[in-house]
Design a protein around this nucleic acid. Structure first.
Length: 424
RNA sequence: GGAGAGGUGGCCGAGUGGUCGAAGGCGCUUGCCUGCUAAGCAAGUGUGGGGGUAACCCCACCGAGGGUUCGAAUCCCUCCCUCUCCGCCA
């Protein structure tokens, strides 16, 4: 959430930021107008309350002195004020709700070094790693490769659940599990992350804390009876883990990793990535989340991104790193690097990880603070990144490691987890 | 699901209608003392909001939301959470 105090002081800054993002700059004026009214009422009601508090003391005093007449007189006066207060408070509450509603729909402010651009065509490539393999045969797309091996089944998945679901058997099912184990091992043993096991159903409140709600309700699966949401990413429960808490500066940064399935309705993505298992309603992901301080959060984003890149390097999958431009940034992000892996079926680099610094955006919503060296309370900064998406990693592995006979060589680092060197 | 107990400041814990933002303790900060450490002594120590150049002033907050009352941590209602026992259960 944005800082309303800053917004009062410097509305132009926010208007400019929203413009860069292709968002709605008019929200700034809207919120300021309501806020001015709110402040006026707040002053008024505070003064009335002060008056009432004084009268209450007089009542106590009069009663102590057994002066019933005086007491009754003051009580009458106080009653009148009480009614005024009630009326103003009703209006005040309405205004507060309006302000909150708008504030919850304003995205994070882009960091200064984020490239300015209108949409994904203006993202900037930062670096590349590895060379796309030159095939001496016509490589198959995973949606052919998998079913040809008899290990990937889109028809039965559709029978069970509809489109955008996949069933896998045998070695491919095992490959999914191997990737999970491998990534968690790297992050916990080599990168110092704490592994976390999490609920996959969370409250509406939790989704609001991290920024998924209220704006993106259409995207989320909801269990109507209990109003719980299936998590679209482990970022939600991980980033909200310390909601409403005060942390000590000493314990920061906290580095968490978690494996969970992710559930997304993919509303509005009709016609996008319709073949294969690139865009699914359910997919596995190993997530990375840092809870850190404002002083170091952008440095930390570089490290988190490298931690995610390390997975692709160990798997020897060619990729590139993209810095998202202002127009393509996610709602909560101030800065984002996407990792894109080479996919022969697309003949292009395809997103496999997204690493963001959300600065204090989630911390404000979820009220996550730490006590600094100055002994004062400050909002933490939260970072998140895929470390990395399992389903797309599986696709990348089988497509990039396929052989002319339709078999798949297992990447070196996965052999201990697979128990075999090739599939089948 | 049934029965019971409970939710107070960073933590423990007192407080059943009025000077309670809240005793006391622990912790923390600062100073004194002390070969070092520990102990001891003294003072300070919540958060959020509004106003003011500032010193500072005001308001709110005792799980959440309503209600009663001139006035609520304290009384009433609803909800949430935790614990104990019973039932059910992977």
């Amino acid at each position: 959430m944005i800082d309303i105090k800053l917004l009062r002081k410097n509305p132009e800054f926010f208007i400019e930021a929203l413009r860069k993002r292709n968002s709605s700059p008019e929200l700034v004026d809207e919120i300021l107008k309501i806020d001015a009214e709110w402040r006026k009422l707040t002053s008024e009601v505070n003064n009335l309350k002060a008056e009432r508090n004084n009268l209450s003391k007089l009542v106590a005093k009069a009663k102590a002195e057994k002066d019933e007449v005086k007491a009754r007189e003051v009580i009458e006066k106080s009653k009148e004020i009480g009614e005024k207060i009630k009326k103003i408070e009703e209006v005040q509450k309405e205004l507060e709700e309006k302000i909150l509603n708008i504030a919850l729909n304003i995205p994070n402010i882009p960091a200064e070094d984020v490239p300015i651009g209108k949409d994904e065509t203006e993202n900037v490539e930062v670096r590349r790693w590895g060379e796309p393999r030159k095939f001496e045969f016509e490589p198959k797309a995973h949606w052919d490769l998998g079913p040809d091996l008899g290990l990937m089944d889109f028809e039965r998945a559709a029978k069970l659940s509809g489109s955008r679901f996949t069933v896998m058997y045998g070695y491919l099912a095992r490959l999914e599990r191997a990737l999970v184990q491998f990534m968690l091992d790297v992050h916990t043993k080599e990168h110092g992350y704490t592994e976390v096991w999490l609920p996959h159903l969370v409250k509406r409140q939790t989704m609001t804390w991290t920024g998924q709600l209220p704006k993106f309700e259409e995207e989320a699966y909801n269990t109507s009876k209990d109003d719980l949401f299936l998590i679209p990413t482990a970022e939600v429960p991980l980033a909200a883990l310390h909601a409403q808490e005060v942390l000590t500066e000493k314990e920061l940064p906290k580095k968490y990793t978690a494996f969970t399935p992710c559930y997304r309705r993919e509303a509005g993505s009709y016609g996008k990535d319709v073949r294969g298992m690139i865009r699914q309603h359910q997919f596995d992901k190993v997530e990375l989340v840092w809870v850190t301080t404002p002083e170091r959060s952008f440095e930390d984003l570089e490290q988190l991104t490298k931690d995610a890149e390390r997975i692709l390097q160990l798997l020897e999958l060619p990729y590139r790193v993209i810095s998202l431009c202002t127009g393509d940034l996610g709602f909560a992000a101030a800065k984002t690097y996407d990792l894109e892996v080479w996919l022969p079926s697309y003949n292009a680099y395809k997103e496999i990880s997204s690493c963001s610094n959300d600065t204090d955006f989630q911390a404000r919503r979820a009220n996550i603070r730490y006590r600094g060296k100055d002994n004062k309370l400050h909002f933490v900064h939260t970072l998140n990144g895929s470390g990395i998406a399992i389903g797309r990693a599986l696709v990348a592995v089988i497509e990039n490691y396929q052989n002319p006979d339709g078999s798949i060589t297992i990447p070196k680092v996965l052999i201990p987890y697979m128990g075999v060197e090739r599939i089948p």
